[in-house]
Design a protein around this nucleic acid. Structure first.
Lengths: 338, 338
DNA sequence: TGGAGGCGTTGAAACGATTCATCGCGCGTC
DNA sequence: GACGCGCGATGAATCGTTTCAACGCCTCCA
């Protein structure tokens, strides 16, 4: 790409045309009340005439700070993160701030590159879904004076703020719902416990079982799937259906997995929910639009982002750990007549 | 939010600590080969010691230009646009550029605000899904030296580049597919023709019918729905089912509409596709995962974004109008045995 | 031994907006 | 008529980096 050749018109050009000093032009732009109406009009005319646009870099260099925040999520194409981003954007918008958004692809190097870029550009703070378990680099950033808010992950460092969703409670609510419906033998299609969300959701299901006086050892079949999508759901469900003592309900680690489960059950002509109840997680947009509308755990994604931005904009310097409670959305895949 | 109090360490602080001049520090940062190894090491040590971070504003002010581009889409929470954004990001990444992403919510004021912000920050160019039919403001931007690329909309101004998808051809392909399967009486659940995409898709269906020697006046029932979502699809399908001479296939303006159509057909116990074939548009992620996998028209969203960024980065100044061809993805909702 | 040439470093100018101490002018007051 | 006051306008200093002409030093060669 060729460099931008045309020199941008500067405040000096405007001043020359309006026959005033640069200071006056600056005053027209920033404190119009301190300028007499006649000069102001002349300056404004010159601005439109030259179609002058302020140079943000110079402005910011002098001011030392800007009304911009950065956010790094794992993947901008994932509906979960876009809803979060939307919440962030809405809160920043209220405060007159703007957002620089980037995705790290779970690559710590990419994350580091974007963090550096953001810092160089003088953002007020950053909201980050960390790519790895290590958050020392974020602490360093905080020590250098940036506001740092962790997204979708409780902070292990008390100096850093965070917003997260209580996965354990969400999974417990889902399991409790099934137990209330009379199910006493559950399957759980889950990812590896190295992923924090997976471990937490597993723990939540255990909680609900124990609370109901059921023994997880005999009442829960946790099946580890590698792909947390429809194919993983299909593979897991096939294993569930092959069991000698077949569970009566299947919990899925997310809605895509549940989609695969429903597909497999249909193929095997197992009615839902009478032959097998199914619960998803995330409550993605299409969960309610499926052939069998899916009971799912809704995460307050928008609120998550909104609150994160709120913490970033907070007046005091203290860190805060916010945990949201998810909400069970009951649909026909557990309570229907099929 | 309190202003960042700590003054950032500057290149001068580093120079002082390393006992060299500022010019040398700058050289270490930008052309390390021109600095002797011993001084370089001393400077690098000072940089780490002070955890110095370059001030992007000053850098950019001096350089006059930066490796950043802006993009404005209608809604970052819409999967179509996030896939496009992803394509943009991938192409920019290759060139070492970064992206500032924002959504306009179809609000021309919001769009204008972000454009101003981007320009003030000296982006090389912007990629925009225009909020309204008017693109004069984008032409103005172009005249001021920014690269402008229109997204998902052919440019009416030959000076501006654009990338779009051929909606007419996509709809024609879908209709042709149905005609090839022997359908001679089609329903089309469409939005108002004031939306360019809707008008184009309608035209495409007409093309296919005429081409096959069928008369659109008798062979096509175009039903205008107000909500382009599942509810709209349901309402439209109910009207189709109530027709005296019932069409044998339904084309839907997008996949969500098709979802509503499928739901309604299931409730009315009309088998798909033997009682009614259904085609969607967009090929969203879950289209293939439905109870009846949906035949749909896939838009090359990633490629759309990738190419847009490509045009933005192009070496020459000439504008280019790129039109992508969509691809029909055939699934069981038209060719199944149900 | 004097000069040429090259390498590494220096220091100041420049980018463009903001800020603030200062100045000029007109008007009212004594 | 002299003085003070206040409103507006001024312009130089400033932010932190990059760039570049100039300079000092060393080496090599005649």
């Amino acid at each position: 790409m060729p460099p931008r050749t045309k020199r941008r018109t500067s405040i000096a050009d405007v001043a020359r045309l309006a026959e005033v000093s640069v200071g006056t032009v600056s005053n027209v732009l920033n404190r119009p009340d301190r300028v007499s109406p006649t000069t102001r009009e002349r300056v404004e005319a010159a601005i439109t005439e030259l179609s002058f646009v302020r140079n943000g870099s110079a402005r910011q260099l002098r001011a030392g700070t800007i009304t911009t925040a950065g956010a790094i999520v794992l993947d901008v194409a994932n509906p979960f993160f876009t809803d979060v981003a939307r919440g962030i954007e809405d809160r920043l918008e209220e405060a007159g701030y703007t957002l620089m958004l980037a995705s790290s692809d779970e690559d710590p190097d990419r994350e580091a590159r974007y963090l550096k870029l953001f810092e160089e550009h003088g953002v007020q703070g950053v909201m980050v879904v960390p790519s790895g378990p290590d958050i020392d680099h974020l602490r360093t950033l905080h020590d250098r004076g940036l506001r740092v808010v962790l997204l979708d992950r409780p902070s292990t460092d008390p100096a850093l703020s965070s917003v997260a969703v209580d996965d354990r409670a969400g999974a417990a609510a889902a399991a409790r719902h099934l137990i209330d419906l009379g199910h006493e033998h559950l399957a759980f299609l889950n990812g590896p416990h190295t992923i924090r969300q997976c471990a937490d959701r597993s723990a939540g299901i255990h909680d609900a079982l124990v609370e109901a006086g059921l023994d997880p050892a005999t009442c829960l079949e946790e099946i580890t799937i590698t792909a947390l999508n429809a194919d993983g759901g299909q593979a897991g469900t096939e294993r569930v259906l092959a069991m000698e003592r077949r569970p009566t309900a299947t919990l899925c680690v997310n809605d895509l997995t549940a989609l695969g489960a429903l597909r497999t059950l249909r193929a095997a002509e197992v009615p839902v929910p009478s032959g097998m109840a199914v619960v998803g997680y995330d409550d993605v947009t299409f969960a309610g639009e499926l052939a069998t509308p899916l009971t799912s755990v809704r995460q307050p994604m928008h609120a998550l982002g909104y609150r994160a931005a709120d913490l970033l904009l907070a007046d005091d310097e203290s860190a805060e750990q916010v945990v949201f409670q998810p909400e069970l959305v009951v649909r026909e895949s557990t309570t229907g007549t099929g």
